[in-house]
Amino acid sequence: MEISGIISAIVIGIIIGVLGRLVVPGRQKIGILWTIVVGILAALAGAAIAKAFGVKDTNGIDWIEWLIQIALAAVGVAALASIKTGGRGRGRR
C-alpha cells in the first residue's frame, strides 16, 4: 500500500469513526485513537460487504456503502465502550 492509500484510510477512518460515535447515544469512554481504529476497520469491512452485495460502485456517492460503514462503526464503538467500562450500561451503576 502506498503512503497516499494509508493517509486515505486514516482520513476515512476518522470520518467513519466519528460518525459512528455520533450515532451511539451517551458518552463513550474510548479515546480518539480507538475511534480511528474502529473507523478504519468499519470502513474496510463495510466496503467488502457493499462489494459482496454489488452496491459498491454506483454512479455518484455510494450512500449504501457509507451507511453500512457507519452502522459497523457504531456497533464497534458501542462494543468497545462496553468492554472498556466493564459492560455497565447507563441505567446500572
Score class of each variant (00 low, 15 high):
56 K>L: 15
53 F>A: 08
41 L>Q: 05
48 A>P: 08
40 I>E: 02
54 G>D: 04
58 T>H: 07
57 D>H: 10
40 I>Q: 02
45 A>W: 06
49 I>T: 05
43 A>S: 12
64 I>V: 15
42 A>I: 06
59 N>Y: 14
65 E>D: 12
53 F>N: 05
41 L>W: 05
65 E>H: 10
59 N>C: 11
41 L>M: 13
50 A>N: 01
58 T>Q: 12
66 W>I: 14
65 E>M: 08
54 G>Y: 03
58 T>G: 11
47 A>Q: 11
37 V>G: 01
56 K>N: 13
52 A>W: 10
57 D>V: 13
64 I>L: 13
41 L>F: 12
45 A>F: 09
56 K>E: 15
52 A>K: 08
51 K>F: 14
45 A>T: 12
59 N>K: 14
54 G>Q: 04
40 I>A: 09
45 A>Y: 04
61 I>C: 06
58 T>D: 08
53 F>E: 07
56 K>Q: 14
56 K>D: 15
54 G>V: 09
52 A>G: 11
64 I>T: 12
65 E>I: 00
47 A>T: 14
56 K>P: 04
61 I>A: 08
56 K>M: 15
50 A>K: 00
43 A>H: 03
38 V>Y: 00
65 E>Y: 09
47 A>M: 12
65 E>F: 07
66 W>K: 05
63 W>I: 15
40 I>D: 01
58 T>L: 15
46 G>V: 03
64 I>G: 03
44 L>D: 08
48 A>H: 07
57 D>T: 13
56 K>A: 15
46 G>S: 06
60 G>W: 08
64 I>E: 07
42 A>P: 02
53 F>G: 05
44 L>H: 06
58 T>Y: 09
47 A>H: 10
37 V>L: 09
46 G>T: 04
57 D>C: 08
62 D>T: 11
56 K>Y: 14
62 D>W: 06
54 G>E: 04
61 I>H: 07
62 D>M: 06
64 I>W: 09
52 A>V: 10
54 G>P: 04
61 I>G: 03
38 V>W: 01
55 V>N: 02
65 E>V: 05
53 F>H: 04
46 G>Y: 01
49 I>Q: 02
65 E>P: 04
40 I>P: 00
43 A>D: 07
66 W>Q: 04
48 A>R: 07
65 E>R: 09
46 G>N: 03
63 W>L: 15
39 G>R: 00
62 D>S: 14
54 G>W: 05
54 G>L: 10
44 L>T: 09
58 T>F: 11
55 V>Y: 02
63 W>S: 10
48 A>K: 07
41 L>E: 06
60 G>I: 10
61 I>N: 07
62 D>E: 12
66 W>S: 05
47 A>E: 13
61 I>K: 06
49 I>R: 01
59 N>S: 15
57 D>A: 11
46 G>K: 01
65 E>G: 10
51 K>T: 14
55 V>P: 01
52 A>L: 13
56 K>T: 11
46 G>F: 02
43 A>L: 07
66 W>V: 12
45 A>I: 13
44 L>V: 13
50 A>P: 02
37 V>T: 04
